[in-house]
Protein backbone atom coordinates (compact mmCIF):
# COMPACT_ATOMS: atom_id res chain seq x y z
CA UNK A 1 0.00 0.00 0.00
CA UNK A 2 2.66 2.43 1.12
CA UNK A 3 4.90 1.44 -1.79
CA UNK A 4 2.02 1.95 -4.17
CA UNK A 5 1.41 5.48 -2.90
CA UNK A 6 5.09 6.41 -3.23
CA UNK A 7 5.29 4.99 -6.75
CA UNK A 8 2.10 6.82 -7.66
CA UNK A 9 3.62 10.04 -6.35
CA UNK A 10 6.70 9.43 -8.51
CA UNK A 11 4.56 8.84 -11.57
CA UNK A 12 2.66 12.07 -10.87
CA UNK A 13 5.88 14.07 -10.72
CA UNK A 14 7.07 12.47 -13.98
CA UNK A 15 3.83 13.30 -15.76
CA UNK A 16 3.92 16.85 -14.43
CA UNK A 17 7.51 17.30 -15.59
CA UNK A 18 6.58 16.01 -19.02
CA UNK A 19 3.68 18.44 -19.23
CA UNK A 20 5.89 21.31 -18.10
CA UNK A 21 8.53 20.44 -20.65
CA UNK A 22 6.03 20.00 -23.44
CA UNK A 23 4.27 23.22 -22.52
CA UNK A 24 7.49 25.20 -22.64
CA UNK A 25 8.47 23.57 -25.93
CA UNK A 26 5.19 24.54 -27.47
CA UNK A 27 5.54 28.22 -26.64
CA UNK A 28 6.50 30.32 -29.67
CA UNK A 29 10.14 31.29 -29.58
CA UNK A 30 12.87 29.67 -27.53
CA UNK A 31 15.75 30.68 -25.31
CA UNK A 32 17.74 31.96 -28.29
CA UNK A 33 15.06 34.20 -29.76
CA UNK A 34 14.69 35.70 -26.30
CA UNK A 35 18.42 35.92 -25.64
CA UNK A 36 19.18 37.55 -28.96
CA UNK A 37 16.31 39.99 -28.68
CA UNK A 38 16.38 42.35 -31.65
CA UNK A 39 19.21 40.37 -33.23
CA UNK A 40 17.08 37.28 -33.66
CA UNK A 41 16.33 38.22 -37.26
CA UNK A 42 19.91 37.32 -37.97
CA UNK A 43 19.62 33.70 -39.06
CA UNK A 44 23.27 32.98 -38.63
CA UNK A 45 23.48 34.22 -35.08
CA UNK A 46 20.33 32.33 -34.20
CA UNK A 47 21.66 29.09 -35.65
CA UNK A 48 24.97 29.56 -33.86
CA UNK A 49 23.21 30.24 -30.56
CA UNK A 50 20.98 27.20 -30.94
CA UNK A 51 24.05 25.11 -31.65
CA UNK A 52 25.77 26.51 -28.56
CA UNK A 53 22.78 25.85 -26.33
CA UNK A 54 22.20 22.44 -27.85
CA UNK A 55 18.66 23.30 -28.94
CA UNK A 56 18.84 21.44 -32.23
CA UNK A 57 18.61 17.97 -30.79
CA UNK A 58 15.18 16.29 -30.70
CA UNK A 59 12.99 17.33 -27.73
CA UNK A 60 12.89 13.76 -26.39
CA UNK A 61 16.68 13.68 -26.03
CA UNK A 62 16.76 17.01 -24.28
CA UNK A 63 13.90 15.96 -21.98
CA UNK A 64 15.78 12.80 -21.04
CA UNK A 65 18.90 14.80 -20.30
CA UNK A 66 16.96 17.38 -18.30
CA UNK A 67 15.20 14.77 -16.16
CA UNK A 68 18.47 12.96 -15.59
CA UNK A 69 19.97 16.21 -14.36
CA UNK A 70 16.93 17.06 -12.25
CA UNK A 71 17.10 13.74 -10.43
CA UNK A 72 20.75 14.27 -9.54
CA UNK A 73 19.99 17.83 -8.45
CA UNK A 74 21.60 19.49 -11.47
CA UNK A 75 18.93 21.67 -13.00
CA UNK A 76 21.19 22.89 -15.79
CA UNK A 77 21.94 26.44 -16.83
CA UNK A 78 19.65 29.44 -16.95
CA UNK A 79 18.72 30.98 -20.27
CA UNK A 80 21.76 33.25 -20.28
CA UNK A 81 23.85 30.11 -20.60
CA UNK A 82 26.15 30.91 -17.69
CA UNK A 83 24.35 30.93 -14.33
CA UNK A 84 23.59 27.57 -12.75
CA UNK A 85 19.85 27.26 -12.08
CA UNK A 86 20.45 25.31 -8.88
CA UNK A 87 22.23 28.34 -7.41
CA UNK A 88 19.46 30.85 -8.21
CA UNK A 89 16.64 28.50 -7.33
CA UNK A 90 18.46 27.11 -4.31
CA UNK A 91 18.67 30.51 -2.60
CA UNK A 92 15.07 31.29 -3.38
CA UNK A 93 13.92 27.87 -2.20
CA UNK A 94 15.74 28.43 1.09
CA UNK A 95 13.98 31.79 1.48
CA UNK A 96 10.58 30.31 0.64
CA UNK A 97 11.14 27.52 3.13
CA UNK A 98 12.10 30.06 5.77
CA UNK A 99 8.95 32.10 5.17
CA UNK A 100 6.75 29.02 5.04
CA UNK A 101 8.27 27.58 8.17
CA UNK A 102 7.79 30.78 10.16
CA UNK A 103 4.22 31.16 8.94
CA UNK A 104 3.46 27.55 9.83
CA UNK A 105 5.04 27.85 13.25
CA UNK A 106 2.73 30.76 14.04
CA UNK A 107 -0.33 29.88 11.97
CA UNK A 108 -0.95 26.17 12.50
CA UNK A 109 -1.00 26.08 16.33
CA UNK A 110 -3.03 29.28 16.38
CA UNK A 111 -5.50 27.87 13.83
CA UNK A 112 -5.96 24.61 15.72
CA UNK A 113 -6.44 26.44 19.00
CA UNK A 114 -8.95 28.92 17.57
CA UNK A 115 -10.78 26.16 15.71
CA UNK A 116 -11.15 24.02 18.82
CA UNK A 117 -12.16 26.97 20.99
CA UNK A 118 -14.81 28.20 18.59
CA UNK A 119 -16.06 24.65 18.03
CA UNK A 120 -16.46 24.02 21.75
CA UNK A 121 -17.99 27.42 22.46
CA UNK A 122 -20.15 27.28 19.36
CA UNK A 123 -22.30 30.39 18.81
CA UNK A 124 -20.91 32.03 21.93
CA UNK A 125 -18.64 35.04 22.16
CA UNK A 126 -15.22 33.39 21.47
CA UNK A 127 -16.68 31.64 18.43
CA UNK A 128 -18.37 34.74 17.09
CA UNK A 129 -15.17 36.78 17.33
CA UNK A 130 -12.94 34.09 15.83
CA UNK A 131 -15.36 33.19 13.06
CA UNK A 132 -15.93 36.79 12.07
CA UNK A 133 -12.19 37.42 11.89
CA UNK A 134 -11.76 34.28 9.83
CA UNK A 135 -14.33 35.42 7.32
CA UNK A 136 -12.52 38.75 7.03
CA UNK A 137 -9.21 36.99 6.53
CA UNK A 138 -10.64 34.78 3.81
CA UNK A 139 -12.50 37.47 1.90
CA UNK A 140 -10.09 40.41 1.98
CA UNK A 141 -7.53 39.94 -0.80
CA UNK A 142 -4.02 39.32 0.52
CA UNK A 143 -2.55 42.44 -1.04
CA UNK A 144 -5.14 44.61 0.70
CA UNK A 145 -4.52 43.13 4.13
CA UNK A 146 -0.76 43.23 3.46
CA UNK A 147 -0.89 46.89 2.48
CA UNK A 148 -3.06 47.75 5.48
CA UNK A 149 -0.63 46.05 7.83
CA UNK A 150 2.33 47.86 6.28
CA UNK A 151 0.42 51.11 6.71
CA UNK A 152 -0.39 50.47 10.36
CA UNK A 153 2.57 48.56 11.74
CA UNK A 154 5.30 50.04 9.64
CA UNK A 155 4.32 53.47 8.37
CA UNK A 156 2.24 54.73 11.33
CA UNK A 157 3.65 52.85 14.30
CA UNK A 158 7.09 52.16 12.89
CA UNK A 159 7.34 48.85 14.76
CA UNK A 160 8.33 46.64 11.85
CA UNK A 161 10.13 47.22 8.56
CA UNK A 162 7.62 47.39 5.72
CA UNK A 163 9.52 45.63 2.95
CA UNK A 164 12.37 43.19 2.65
CA UNK A 165 15.61 44.64 1.38
CA UNK A 166 17.92 41.73 2.19
CA UNK A 167 19.41 40.10 -0.90
CA UNK A 168 18.26 36.67 -1.98
CA UNK A 169 21.56 34.99 -1.14
CA UNK A 170 21.78 36.29 2.45
CA UNK A 171 21.70 33.76 5.29
CA UNK A 172 18.39 33.13 7.05
CA UNK A 173 19.24 35.12 10.17
CA UNK A 174 19.52 38.38 8.19
CA UNK A 175 15.85 38.23 7.20
CA UNK A 176 14.75 39.17 10.72
CA UNK A 177 12.90 41.33 11.54
CA UNK A 178 11.93 42.13 7.93
CA UNK A 179 10.26 38.75 7.51
CA UNK A 180 7.81 39.35 10.38
CA UNK A 181 5.21 41.33 8.44
CA UNK A 182 4.86 38.79 5.61
CA UNK A 183 4.70 36.04 8.24
CA UNK A 184 1.87 37.82 10.03
CA UNK A 185 -0.13 38.25 6.84
CA UNK A 186 0.43 34.67 5.73
CA UNK A 187 -0.45 33.12 9.07
CA UNK A 188 -3.55 35.30 9.22
CA UNK A 189 -4.77 33.97 5.86
CA UNK A 190 -3.85 30.32 6.37
CA UNK A 191 -5.18 30.37 9.90
CA UNK A 192 -8.63 31.28 8.63
CA UNK A 193 -8.99 28.23 6.38
CA UNK A 194 -7.69 25.71 8.87
CA UNK A 195 -9.69 27.23 11.72
CA UNK A 196 -13.01 27.03 9.85
CA UNK A 197 -12.32 23.41 8.99
CA UNK A 198 -11.34 22.46 12.54
CA UNK A 199 -14.34 24.30 13.94
CA UNK A 200 -16.88 22.39 11.86
CA UNK A 201 -15.13 19.12 12.54
CA UNK A 202 -15.16 19.76 16.30
CA UNK A 203 -18.86 20.63 16.13
CA UNK A 204 -19.62 17.38 14.27
CA UNK A 205 -17.68 15.27 16.71
CA UNK A 206 -19.16 16.99 19.77
CA UNK A 207 -22.61 16.08 18.45
CA UNK A 208 -21.62 12.46 17.85
CA UNK A 209 -23.06 9.49 19.70
CA UNK A 210 -19.72 8.56 21.22
CA UNK A 211 -19.19 11.97 22.79
CA UNK A 212 -22.71 11.82 24.23
CA UNK A 213 -21.90 8.31 25.47
CA UNK A 214 -18.64 9.47 27.06
CA UNK A 215 -20.53 12.21 28.88
CA UNK A 216 -23.18 9.78 30.06
CA UNK A 217 -20.46 7.36 31.14
CA UNK A 218 -19.37 10.02 33.61
CA UNK A 219 -16.18 11.21 31.91
CA UNK A 220 -15.39 14.74 33.14
CA UNK A 221 -15.74 17.42 30.46
CA UNK A 222 -12.12 18.22 29.66
CA UNK A 223 -11.08 14.59 29.80
CA UNK A 224 -13.88 13.85 27.35
CA UNK A 225 -12.69 16.67 25.07
CA UNK A 226 -9.06 15.55 25.03
CA UNK A 227 -9.54 11.78 24.97
CA UNK A 228 -12.74 11.24 23.04
CA UNK A 229 -13.42 14.33 20.95
CA UNK A 230 -10.21 15.99 19.76
CA UNK A 231 -8.30 12.95 18.46
CA UNK A 232 -11.21 12.31 16.12
CA UNK A 233 -11.97 15.93 15.36
CA UNK A 234 -8.42 16.79 14.31
CA UNK A 235 -8.05 13.91 11.83
CA UNK A 236 -9.68 15.71 8.91
CA UNK A 237 -7.53 18.77 9.64
CA UNK A 238 -4.39 16.95 8.52
CA UNK A 239 -5.26 17.23 4.86
CA UNK A 240 -6.20 20.89 5.02
CA UNK A 241 -2.95 21.63 6.82
CA UNK A 242 -1.05 19.75 4.10
CA UNK A 243 -2.72 21.73 1.33
CA UNK A 244 -1.92 24.95 3.16
CA UNK A 245 1.73 23.99 3.53
CA UNK A 246 1.98 23.19 -0.16
CA UNK A 247 0.37 26.53 -0.96
CA UNK A 248 2.84 28.32 1.33
CA UNK A 249 5.80 26.80 -0.46
CA UNK A 250 4.75 27.53 -3.98
CA UNK A 251 1.86 29.85 -4.29
CA UNK A 252 2.44 32.97 -2.24
CA UNK A 253 3.42 35.14 -5.22
CA UNK A 254 1.28 38.11 -4.22
CA UNK A 255 2.72 38.35 -0.72
CA UNK A 256 6.27 38.03 -2.05
CA UNK A 257 5.69 40.81 -4.54
CA UNK A 258 4.05 43.15 -2.02
CA UNK A 259 6.85 42.72 0.51
CA UNK A 260 9.59 42.43 -2.10
CA UNK A 261 10.46 39.07 -0.55
CA UNK A 262 12.97 37.06 -2.62
CA UNK A 263 11.11 33.73 -2.67
CA UNK A 264 10.30 31.14 -5.32
CA UNK A 265 7.02 32.70 -6.34
CA UNK A 266 8.60 35.99 -7.31
CA UNK A 267 11.44 34.25 -9.12
CA UNK A 268 8.83 32.37 -11.12
CA UNK A 269 7.03 35.58 -12.15
CA UNK A 270 10.30 37.32 -13.01
CA UNK A 271 11.52 34.33 -15.01
CA UNK A 272 8.30 34.14 -16.95
CA UNK A 273 8.52 37.77 -17.97
CA UNK A 274 12.22 37.29 -18.86
CA UNK A 275 11.39 34.17 -20.85
CA UNK A 276 13.96 32.41 -18.70
CA UNK A 277 12.30 29.14 -19.49
CA UNK A 278 14.77 26.70 -17.91
CA UNK A 279 14.21 28.45 -14.57
CA UNK A 280 10.43 28.37 -15.00
CA UNK A 281 10.61 24.66 -15.73
CA UNK A 282 12.71 24.01 -12.67
CA UNK A 283 10.46 25.94 -10.31
CA UNK A 284 7.36 24.26 -11.67
CA UNK A 285 9.02 20.92 -11.11
CA UNK A 286 9.99 21.81 -7.54
CA UNK A 287 6.52 23.08 -6.68
CA UNK A 288 4.93 19.96 -8.15
CA UNK A 289 7.25 17.73 -6.14
CA UNK A 290 6.47 19.66 -2.97
CA UNK A 291 2.72 19.19 -3.53
CA UNK A 292 3.15 15.48 -4.09
CA UNK A 293 5.44 15.02 -1.08
CA UNK A 294 3.33 17.04 1.33
CA UNK A 295 0.14 15.27 0.31
CA UNK A 296 1.85 11.92 0.56
CA UNK A 297 3.02 12.81 4.05
CA UNK A 298 -0.50 13.91 4.99
CA UNK A 299 -2.03 10.65 3.74
CA UNK A 300 0.55 8.69 5.66
CA UNK A 301 -0.09 10.64 8.81
CA UNK A 302 -3.86 10.15 8.44
CA UNK A 303 -3.26 6.45 7.98
CA UNK A 304 -1.18 6.26 11.12
CA UNK A 305 -3.55 8.41 13.18
CA UNK A 306 -6.80 6.76 12.08
CA UNK A 307 -7.27 3.34 13.69
CA UNK A 308 -9.68 2.29 10.97
CA UNK A 309 -7.12 2.77 8.22
CA UNK A 310 -4.24 1.57 10.34
CA UNK A 311 -5.82 -1.77 11.24
CA UNK A 312 -6.92 -2.25 7.65
CA UNK A 313 -3.30 -2.45 6.53
CA UNK A 314 -1.60 -3.82 9.62
CA UNK A 315 -3.84 -6.73 10.55
CA UNK A 316 -4.28 -8.02 7.04
Amino acid sequence: MLIRRVLLGGVTVCIVSLIIFAGVEMLPGDACTQFLGEYQADEELLAQCRKDLDLNRPAIDRFAEWTQGAITGDLGLAADGTTKISTIVGDRLKNSLLLAFCAMAVGIPLALLLGVVSGLWRDRLPDIIASTLAIFAMTIPEFVSATLLILVLSVWLGWLPGIVLTSAAAPASEFFPEILLPVIVLSFVMCAHIMRMVRSSVIDVMASDYVQMATLKGVPYWQMVFRHALPNALLPAINVVALTIAWLLGGVVVIEVVFNYPGLGRLMIDSISDRNLPVVQSIALIVASVYVCVNLAADLLTMIANPKLRTMYMRK
Binding site: S208, D209, Y210, V211, Q212, M213, A214, L216, K217, R227, H228, P231, N232, N306, P307, K308
Partner: peptide, 15 residues
Protein backbone atom coordinates in the same frame (compact mmCIF):
# COMPACT_ATOMS: atom_id res chain seq x y z
CA UNK B 1 -25.49 3.50 33.71
CA UNK B 2 -26.67 3.72 30.11
CA UNK B 3 -26.55 1.15 27.36
CA UNK B 4 -26.92 3.20 24.21
CA UNK B 5 -28.68 2.72 20.93
CA UNK B 6 -26.32 1.78 18.14
CA UNK B 7 -23.18 0.87 20.04
CA UNK B 8 -21.19 0.97 16.83
CA UNK B 9 -21.40 4.74 16.92
CA UNK B 10 -21.35 5.09 20.68
CA UNK B 11 -17.90 3.63 21.17
CA UNK B 12 -15.13 6.15 20.59
CA UNK B 13 -13.41 5.12 17.34
CA UNK B 14 -9.84 6.03 18.32
CA UNK B 15 -9.76 4.14 21.63
Amino acid sequence: ALIPQNSGQSLTPNL
